[in-house]
Design a protein around this nucleic acid. Structure first.
Lengths: 194, 194
DNA sequence: GTCTATAGATTGATAGAC
DNA sequence: GTCTATCAATCTATAGAC
């Protein structure tokens, strides 16, 4: 199929999303202008509207994409047999996945209030779906008298908050490797539910 | 001392900070205009500049005030004798203090990137000072063979992230009282360091 | 598909009257 | 101390040429 000279829609589109991701993560959605995004991509501001209907859906697409990736990746994780194995899988998966996409994680936690109500509801639904995956593990383990947790819902949120916190301090050039970090957190999680 | 008619500096000042706190927490610093703050207070935008030099110092004063309050309140907490007592004090204090000021907590975590570099450094210093209070407790407990922690620095950050996470879900009208929540989290913290 | 140009609204901050 | 009025810059989004 012949292409119009100067047509780059298949490459410019991803670059727009990439620039938005970087800039939203660094400065915040409200603080970033469409002109800044355009400058990062190397086009004029008007050209952005060939790839997004408006600034809001640029944010929403990034967040929904991140949540979809998260749920898909977890669905593809091999499952473990016993309760401790399942919990360890989740713990290591969560750390590894989140450390691999710090910008998307940052945006997905910080920019919720800049979503329209409809978009917010969509993202919240996906987030709850992910949380329920961990809660299932905790509930099964408790029902089989393997775990001892006072409240599976609160323990779910506590564990996720603790694990996601890794993103605030971990640097790959730091003194600890990824698997050392995983091991330290798994040790805390394991003890906390025993 | 006689006062000029219409002078309300002693009451308007706090109301400006209060309005900024509420609006920054709800919509984010960058998304809130000086006119919105003025409207919330019930004055015109120009009048705000009798109480703050600019928008940035409005944000900075809120964050520094919050961190000062936090460190002061912890300094006034009665100390405990043994390692577990000290850790339990910290755990319950952290939850109680943070749940008591959800807006200031929210701002202090979300708006760091909207501070000027100098202001950011000041807040970061206070935050590190607070974290080191918990790390001291963990290190002493480990050195006396009371706690078993793989890494006191990481454990410090993990515990604080877990505890601060309460703010994302706790509602005073919910099914759990504040002391029930404290007890559940203390149970997890205690087990995690044993 | 990208450009230039621009509409129309809003921003932070200041000046000067009262 | 607060007001009105305003400056100069910036914003999102669109229109039309190429």
């Amino acid at each position: 199929m012949a292409r119009t000279a100067g047509s780059h829609s298949d490459i410019t589109g991803p670059r727009v999303r990439e620039a938005a991701l970087t800039l939203f993560a660094r400065h915040g959605y409200a603080a970033v202008s469409m002109r800044q995004i355009a400058k990062e991509v190397g086009v004029q501001a008007g050209a952005l509207y060939n790839y997004t209907t408006d600034k809001q859906s640029l944010l929403f697409d990034l967040m929904r994409g991140h949540m979809d990736d998260l749920l898909d990746a977890w669905a593809k994780e091999p499952s473990a047999e016993d309760a401790f194995g399942r919990l360890e899988r989740f713990t290591r998966f969560h750390i590894r996945f989140h450390l691999g996409r710090p910008q998307a994680v940052f945006i997905s936690y910080m920019e919720l209030r800049n979503l329209t109500p409809e978009n917010f509801a969509t993202i919240e639904d996906l987030r709850r779906r992910y949380e329920s995956e961990l809660e299932k593990i905790l509930r099964d383990g408790r029902d089989n008298d393997v775990f001892r947790v006072a409240d599976t819902k609160i323990t779910t949120l506590a564990i996720i908050a603790m694990l996601t916190g890794v993103n605030t301090w971990y640097r790959s050039a730091g003194r600890l490797s990824l698997s050392e970090v995983e091991a330290i957190y798994w040790d805390m999680v394991r003890k906390a539910v025993t």
